[in-house]
Amino acid sequence: MSAMQDYRSSLEDVNSRKFETFSYLPAMTPEQIRQQVEYIVGKGWNPAIEHTEPENAFDHYWYMWKLPMFGETDVEAILAEAEACHKAHPNNHVRLIGYDNYAQSQGAAMVVYRGKPV
């Protein structure tokens, strides 16, 4: 059996915190983020963008960036909204969510931009 890796993460160290599954992996490239958006669209899920300050990511609700993009299938439009949110809030984490209408839950959620704590 292989040894498990310990991911050092603590509430006191904002930079060490992990969010969702993908945060344990190296940062996604723009192409990998695009593939995730294509997956969300391909599943028929509604994309949404949220953001929050790094120090509030665990104990506060995330702010919604505009309304969820109900029925949006244009990958470029979704990526543009995520980038616009990041430009408007460069120090915040920006999260992409895919809402599954059938299960009435989040089908996917990933941080696509990590903010810098001030």
Score class of each variant (00 low, 15 high):
residue 65 W to L: 03
residue 9 S to Y: 13
residue 28 M to E: 06
residue 73 T to D: 15
residue 39 Y to C: 00
residue 59 D to V: 05
residue 84 A to C: 03
residue 61 Y to R: 15
residue 69 M to K: 15
residue 40 I to E: 07
residue 54 P to M: 12
residue 33 I to V: 14
residue 10 S to V: 03
residue 39 Y to M: 12
residue 86 H to S: 00
residue 76 E to N: 14
residue 84 A to R: 00
residue 72 E to V: 05
residue 13 D to N: 15
residue 17 R to S: 09
residue 58 F to E: 14
residue 66 K to W: 06
residue 21 T to S: 05
residue 79 L to I: 02
residue 56 N to T: 03
residue 42 G to A: 11
residue 77 A to R: 13
residue 25 L to C: 09
residue 18 K to H: 09
residue 23 S to Y: 07
residue 49 I to Q: 09
residue 15 N to W: 09
residue 73 T to K: 08
residue 16 S to A: 10
residue 32 Q to I: 02
residue 33 I to S: 06
residue 44 G to V: 11
residue 54 P to Y: 08
residue 31 E to V: 02
residue 74 D to V: 02
residue 68 P to A: 01
residue 38 E to T: 08
residue 16 S to V: 01
residue 28 M to S: 10
residue 22 F to Q: 04
residue 80 A to M: 13
residue 47 P to H: 04
residue 41 V to Y: 04
residue 70 F to K: 14
residue 73 T to P: 13
residue 74 D to W: 11
residue 48 A to F: 02
residue 67 L to Y: 10
residue 39 Y to D: 03
residue 9 S to N: 12
residue 20 E to M: 11
residue 20 E to P: 03
residue 24 Y to A: 06
residue 82 A to Y: 06
residue 17 R to A: 02
residue 11 L to K: 11
residue 39 Y to S: 00
residue 50 E to A: 12
residue 81 E to I: 03
residue 77 A to N: 14
residue 62 W to D: 14
residue 45 W to I: 00
residue 67 L to T: 10
residue 46 N to E: 05
residue 80 A to D: 04
residue 47 P to D: 13
residue 54 P to H: 11
residue 37 V to F: 14
residue 17 R to G: 01
residue 32 Q to E: 15
residue 46 N to I: 00
residue 37 V to D: 07
residue 22 F to P: 00
residue 40 I to H: 07
residue 68 P to H: 01
residue 37 V to C: 07
residue 6 D to A: 14
residue 73 T to S: 12
residue 44 G to E: 10
residue 62 W to V: 00
residue 9 S to G: 04
residue 74 D to P: 03
residue 79 L to C: 00
residue 24 Y to R: 11
residue 88 A to D: 15
residue 17 R to Q: 14
residue 32 Q to M: 14
residue 26 P to V: 06
residue 21 T to H: 15
residue 25 L to W: 13
residue 4 M to E: 15
residue 34 R to G: 07
residue 46 N to R: 01
residue 22 F to G: 04
residue 30 P to E: 15
residue 26 P to I: 09
residue 25 L to G: 01
residue 84 A to N: 12
residue 55 E to G: 04
residue 16 S to G: 11
residue 82 A to F: 05
residue 68 P to Y: 00
residue 19 F to L: 02
residue 84 A to L: 03
residue 64 M to D: 12
residue 40 I to A: 04
residue 17 R to V: 02
residue 80 A to R: 14
residue 78 I to Y: 03
residue 53 E to A: 10
residue 80 A to Y: 05
residue 63 Y to Q: 10
residue 26 P to A: 08
residue 10 S to W: 10
residue 87 K to C: 04
residue 77 A to F: 08
residue 25 L to T: 03
residue 14 V to Y: 07
residue 80 A to G: 06
residue 57 A to C: 08
residue 34 R to F: 02
residue 75 V to C: 06
residue 23 S to N: 13
residue 36 Q to H: 09
residue 78 I to F: 07
residue 68 P to V: 02
residue 54 P to F: 10
residue 36 Q to S: 14
residue 36 Q to N: 13
residue 73 T to W: 10
residue 48 A to C: 11
